[in-house]
Design a protein around this nucleic acid. Structure first.
Lengths: 242, 242
DNA sequence: CATCCGGTTAACGTTACCTTAATCTGGGGA
DNA sequence: TCCCCAGATTAAGGTAACGTTAACCGGATG
């Protein structure tokens, strides 16, 4: 069963970007654009999580939050706040949000927080539910922000890590520079898409044996990049029918 | 099997913060918001421990406590009391709680008390029941509030100790400044998240050999801090061979 | 009442990293 | 084969995050 997420933001460009990325990640997403509409969606949609902007028409995020809690609704909430300086006071928790993000943020960050919350609220015992990607000799621990090649930890910068994580999350799929920008960078980044190349290059330096013949990050000419899928690496067992 | 804790507090912001931190610590947590609801949860949830606020709608903490004991229910109870001066009287009256905390407190304090109670009520054989964290040359005795580096005791201030203990409890996981504030500080702390940096700095002074190349408390840029996990320690040792 | 100690804040120094831009390389099409 | 373009690489500059110190404040202690 797909997890359902309700996104509440009045800026179409932002809510659409969020919607796009969360759907890509496999969630069932619905958007509304003001505070009151949240309560119209509660019964019909029954969201498993709400992404809630602070500034909203009709009823702001804090009001929505409090009203929900007053109704004893424990649905996890991620608050989006536009202003850095307001954050601290809000976080002081007069309201009951589960996590906060200050704008601008990347969709990828939001996704990480959401996954963290889901892991916590329905924590499977034992395993800790930690998200780990294994690609050949490469291991990516989302939670610990740690990457290992042949079991040896490699040190990545924040952008490098986010980029790699995004590729992991869409393993085997070719991603355009535009898509990578939209996933990994702040949503209002205006710049050359070639910036992606630079970080890819640095990443390859750190995780590939031979940058000339990449095992993991493949270039797809005229399109973008992709992380080699299971079939290309080794466990073709699942695809054994070919 | 995960231990189950029932949290009873009518202030959503507080009960959520407690819920958050106890879940993070691996407990199965359920919240209710008034005294009577406790008895509705007893059968279905069967809590191993109850965190009980004193001031509650419908039925206050003391009443709940007495009623439980009257029913011969020996479930351990931690009482939360809002007022400093009332505490003595309550504690004097024996109404069957196992421990008391006066608000405001940090979630971490609560966690320590809870662990202490579990240790007491079902003292594990062998281990001596004492929680000890060992990270390389660093040893943290939770109970004794003692920290040693290379077997040599180092003197930490209360905040420094709590911070280190919190990091120990989430070893290997990256914690944001926000999370650290929510875990270690009083729940109504309103201030700069940079305060965390200062204490981290002081901690490193006391436990790290070389503050420039920390072995234990790692900075994760744009995110927060983490205590090095088991694997990372290995690679740190490789680097230590110079 | 004076002193001390720890917590917090603010200011400043420093580092690491993101980005731009310029140059280099290689492969495919004419 | 040569040219051209897409991608790869590298160096350099600016900036924001982090580290550190000092000063202030308030509560505890003698």
């Amino acid at each position: 069963m797909k997890k359902k997420i309700l996104v509440v933001d009045d800026e179409p460009s932002i809510s659409m970007l969020i919607e796009f990325n969360l759907k890509l990640a496999g969630y069932d997403v619905r958007c509304v654009h003001d505070g009151e509409a949240v309560f119209d969606m509660l019964k019909p949609f029954r969201p498993d999580l709400i992404v809630l902007d602070l500034m909203l028409p009709k009823m702001d995020g804090i009001q929505v939050c409090r009203e929900l809690r007053k109704q004893n609704n424990a649905v996890p909430i991620v608050m989006l706040t536009a202003l850095q300086d307001v954050t601290d006071k809000i976080t002081g928790l007069d309201n009951g949000a589960d996590d906060y993000m200050t704008k601008p943020f990347s969709p990828q960050e939001l996704l990480s927080r959401i996954q963290a919350i889901f892991r916590r609220t329905q924590a499977l015992p034992g395993s800790g539910g930690n998200v780990v990607h294994e690609i050949g000799r490469l291991t990516v621990f989302a939670e610990q922000r740690e990457v290992r090649v042949d079991g040896k930890a490699v040190d990545l910068t924040p952008k490098e890590f986010e980029l790699l994580l995004f590729l992991c999350r869409h393993r085997g799929k070719v991603l355009s520079r535009q898509q990578l920008l939209h996933g990994v960078w702040d949503y209002h980044f205006l710049g050359d898409t070639r910036i992606v190349d630079v970080h890819i290059s640095h990443l390859r330096d750190k995780i590939e044996r031979n940058a000339r013949a990449p095992e993991y990050i493949m270039t797809v000419r005229n399109v973008g990049y992709k992380l080699s899928g299971p079939a290309a690496t080794e466990s073709a067992m699942q695809n054994a029918s070919l």
